[in-house]
Design a protein around this nucleic acid. Structure first.
Lengths: 347, 347
DNA sequence: TTGTAGGCGTTATCAA
DNA sequence: TTGATAACGCCTACAA
C-alpha cells in the first residue's frame, strides 16, 4: 500500500506550491499552461484525488445529494423507484455528485432527517419524490433556503420551487384517445379519491379527452384507493351499471390488473386460443383496459399501460438541482415530461 | 437562520472546554456525571451535531457505506433490489452509518469506482451484490484490506470474506417437496445454464430433493438464460418429452411465468371458472409451476414462488460490515438465511 | 477530571 | 503567475 497522496505530495512532485496545485484543480485559467501541464502529470502519475472531507471543511459543500428510499408498498407500483434511483445516481455521478439514501416513516421523520443530514453531512441538496398539497417538507426546506427539487409538481403553486414531473393528464388523455380511435365512446375511468394532485391530474386527462370527443363523462368513473382488489370491485360496479363503459382507463397498474379480472369475469374473452406473445394466455379482454406506470407486472401480464420516462425524470431532477447548486441563484424553469402509451394485449 | 453550532459554541454554553464536549461525545465515561449532563443539555438546546467532515479528517472514517444500484434488467427480477436497498439503508442508519449509491457498467468500472470512492470520500465499506466465481471485485478489495460484505456466497472459498446469502438449494428443495407432498413424482426443473453459483445451487436443491424421494432427475431439467420467452420455450420442450413432468420448479419468476404459459397451452386449465382471489383469472394450471424470488409479478399473477428474506439479508449485511468496522479485526461468521415458499394459485 | 496545543487536507486571502 | 499563511471543526496526545 502506498502512502496517502495529498496535495502536498503532488506539489513536491511537480516542484510547485500546494496552492498552485489547488489552482490547477479549481481555477485552471489562472495557472500558466506549462505549469498546469506539469502539475496535471504529477496528479495522474500519483493517482491523486482531492479529499472531499478536507474540501468540504473549507467550502462547506459536500457534493452529496440525498434521496429517500421508501418502503416498497404493494410492490407493483413501488418498483417505479428502482429506475428512478438508477437514473439519478448515474446523472449525479456525471455531474460530480454522489447520491445518498435515507429512509423516513413520515413527513415529520423526514424533516428530522433533513436537519441531521444538513448539519452533520453538509448535504448540498435533496430530491423529493411524491409531493402533495401543502407538503410540510418543501416548506421546511424553502424556509431554510436549502436547495431541492421535487419529482412531482407543487400543486399549490407551480413557481414555488424547481420541479420535474410527468404529464399524467396527457398520459390518460392519450390512453383515452387510443380507445376513442378504436371506436369506443363510453370509456370508463378508475382512479384514486379526489384530493391527491397526481390522482386528480390523471382523472382530468381522461375527462377532458372524453369531453373533447363530445362524450359526457358523467357516471363513467369511480374512485378507489389503490390495489388490485379495489380495482376489481370498482370495475365490476362500473360494468354492472345501466349503460356500462366498453373500455377502461385506470390510474395505476394495480387498479388496471383488478379491472382486467372484472372485465374478463363480465364478458369472457373472445380470444382464448390466441397465442401472439409472451402473455398471450391472458388474451385480449372484451372490455379493453389500460393501466398507468408500465410496471414490470404490466409487461409480464401484457397490460397496455402509460409509461413514465423515469430515467429522464431523474436526470432532469439532477440537472435542475445542480443548476441551483453550481449556477446563479435563480430558480430554474420546471420540466414537464410526456409519458408514452405502451401498447400490449389489453387495448 | 442561526449561526453554525460547533463544539466551541457548546463548550461556551456549558462553561467547559471544547475537549470536555468532545469527551462527552466520544468517551462519556471519563467525564463527571454532572458535567456530562450539563454538556448534554447544551448540546440538545443548541441542536448541535458533530461535523462529519471535520471528524473524518481526524479519524479517517466517513461512516459511509456504498452499494451499487444496477440498471433494472427485465424489471421482474430487478425489483429485488428495492427491498434490499430499503433494508440496508434502514439498518445502516440505526448503526450510525449512511448508504451511498453508485453505478457501474461492469466489474472493471466498478473497481475504478471503488478507488475513487475510497480516496475521495474515504468510504468505510462496501456491500456487494451478486458475486460469482472468481469475482475480480472481491479480490481487489481484499488485496487492499478494504472492509466489505457480499450478498451472495464466494463460491470458490466460503471463508474468503464475510458474506450473507439465501439458501437457494433449500428453496428449490422446499418447492420440490411441496409438489412431492401433493403426489407428484416427475417434477421438472427449468434453470440457468450451469456455471453460475446461484443457478447451480438452485438446481442442486431440486435434484437432491428428487433423489431423496427416490426419483431419478435425469432428463427432467432444462437450461435457459433468464426470461419469459425462454421459460416458455424450455417448458414446452420439457412437456413434449416422452414422459413429461407433471409439475415444474423454476429458478426465477421470469422463467416460471413463461413455463406457466406453456403449461396452460399444453393442458388447458381445469379451473377456468374458479374465482378465489385477486389473480383467480389465471386459475390453477394442470401442471403446477413454482417460481423463485417472489417478485411483485408473482404476487399479481398468483404464482407460487420461493421468497427471499431480502430485508433481513440487507440487515445482516450491515451487521457484518459494522462488526468488521467497529469491532475487533476478525472475520465475522457468514450468514445463510432460509427462504420460504409462498403458496398461491399455481401450485 | 479538565484544559491546552497541534494538525488532519484543503482553499481563500493576500503578498511577492 | 506563484507562494506563504490562516482557517474550516474536530480529535488525540499531553499537561494541569
Amino acid at each position: 500500500m502506498s502512502e496517502k497522496v495529498t496535495i502536498a505530495t503532488v506539489a513536491r512532485h511537480a516542484q510547485v506550491s500546494r496552492q498552485t496545485v489547488s489552482n490547477v484543480l479549481n481555477s485552471p485559467h489562472v495557472v500558466r499552461e506549462e505549469t498546469r501541464r506539469r502539475v496535471q502529470e504529477a496528479i495522474d502519475a500519483l493517482g491523486y484525488r482531492a479529499s472531499q472531507a478536507a474540501r468540504q471543511m473549507r467550502t462547506g459543500r459536500s457534493r452529496l445529494i440525498a434521496v429517500r428510499i421508501e418502503p416498497t408498498r404493494d410492490g407493483i407500483n413501488g418498483s417505479v423507484l428502482d429506475r428512478f434511483l438508477h437514473g439519478l445516481t448515474e446523472t449525479a455521478e456525471a455531474a460530480g455528485y454522489r447520491a445518498m439514501l435515507y429512509t423516513a416513516a413520515d413527513a415529520a421523520a423526514e424533516i428530522a432527517t433533513f436537519d441531521d443530514l444538513l448539519s452533520a453531512y453538509d448535504l448540498d441538496g435533496f430530491v423529493l419524490t411524491g409531493t402533495d398539497h401543502g407538503d410540510p417538507r418543501t416548506a421546511w426546506l424553502a424556509e431554510r433556503a436549502v436547495p431541492f427539487v421535487t419529482f412531482g409538481r407543487p400543486w399549490d403553486d407551480p413557481d414555488a420551487h424547481p420541479w420535474v414531473d410527468v404529464d399524467g393528464a396527457a398520459g390518460t388523455a392519450q390512453a383515452t384517445g387510443h380507445l376513442l380511435a378504436a371506436g369506443h365512446r363510453r370509456i370508463g375511468f378508475i382512479g384514486w379519491p379526489a384530493g391527491s394532485g397526481v390522482g386528480d391530474d390523471r382523472r382530468a386527462g381522461w375527462r377532458e379527452a372524453l369531453r373533447a370527443a363530445g362524450v359526457d363523462p358523467a357516471g363513467l368513473d369511480r374512485e378507489a384507493v389503490d390495489g388490485i382488489a379495489e380495482g376489481e370491485r370498482l370495475a365490476a360496479d362500473l360494468l354492472a351499471a345501466a349503460s356500462p363503459p366498453t373500455a377502461l382507463v385506470c390510474a395505476s397498474d394495480s387498479l388496471a390488473l383488478g379491472a382486467l379480472q372484472a372485465a374478463r369475469a363480465a364478458a369472457p374473452s373472445t380470444a382464448t386460443a390466441a397465442h401472439t406473445g409472451p402473455a398471450a394466455h391472458t388474451g385480449a379482454p372484451a372490455v379493453p383496459v389500460i393501466g398507468f406506470d408500465d410496471t414490470p407486472v404490466a409487461a409480464a401480464v401484457g397490460l397496455t399501460s402509460v409509461s413514465q420516462p423515469l430515467g429522464d425524470a431523474a436526470a432532469r431532477c439532477v440537472d435542475l438541482l445542480t443548476a441551483v447548486l453550481d449556477g446563479p441563484p435563480r430558480t430554474p424553469a420546471p420540466v414537464l415530461l410526456q409519458p408514452s402509451l405502451v401498447l400490449r394485449h389489453t387495448a
